[in-house]
Amino acid sequence: MWSIFDFFDTIFRVNDQAKQALQEIIREKTYSKNEIIQAIGSRCRTIYFVKSGGARIFYYKDGTDITEHFAFDNDLIVRAESLFTGNPTSKGIQAIDATRMLAIDSEKLFHLYDQHHDLERLFRLIFEREYVNTVKRLESLQFKSAKERYLELLDTTDFVQKIPLKYIASYLGITPVSLSRIRAGID
Rank of each mutant, 00 (worst) to 15 (best):
V160M: 02
S170K: 01
V132P: 02
Y167K: 04
T157A: 06
A80T: 15
F84Y: 01
T89M: 06
H69Y: 13
F127S: 05
Q161S: 15
E139C: 11
V132C: 02
D75Y: 01
K91M: 13
K136H: 14
S170C: 08
F159Y: 15
K144Q: 13
V78W: 05
K162N: 14
E81S: 15
I168Y: 04
P164M: 01
I66G: 03
I163F: 11
H117T: 13
D158L: 12
F72A: 00
T67R: 08
Y171L: 02
F58L: 04
K166A: 07
Q94R: 11
G92N: 08
Y150I: 04
D75V: 04
I96S: 06
Y59D: 03
F127D: 00
L154M: 14
A71N: 04
I126K: 00
A71V: 00
D155N: 15
K166N: 11
K144H: 12
V78I: 15
R121H: 09
L102A: 02
L138F: 04
R121F: 09
T134K: 14
Q161W: 09
V135R: 09
E148V: 04
D62L: 06
L122V: 08
K108V: 10
Y113P: 13
G63N: 03
H69K: 15
Y167M: 13
H69R: 14
F123L: 09
Y150N: 00
P176E: 10
T156C: 12
K61H: 09
F110L: 08
F70E: 10
G86S: 07
F127P: 01
G92A: 01
K147L: 01
V160L: 08
P176V: 09
K136Y: 12
T67M: 05
D97S: 10
R121K: 07
R149E: 05
H111G: 11
E139G: 08
T156G: 12
I57D: 01
E152S: 14
R56W: 10
Y113H: 03
L102P: 04
N133F: 07
K162R: 15
Q115F: 12
I77Y: 00
L172Q: 11
R100K: 11
R149K: 07
I104S: 05
E128D: 14
A103H: 03
D155M: 14
N133W: 06
L83Y: 03
L112E: 01
D155E: 15
V160C: 10
A146G: 11
K91Y: 11
M101H: 05
F70T: 00
R79L: 09
D97P: 06
I96F: 06
F58S: 03
I104Q: 10
D114N: 15
V135H: 06
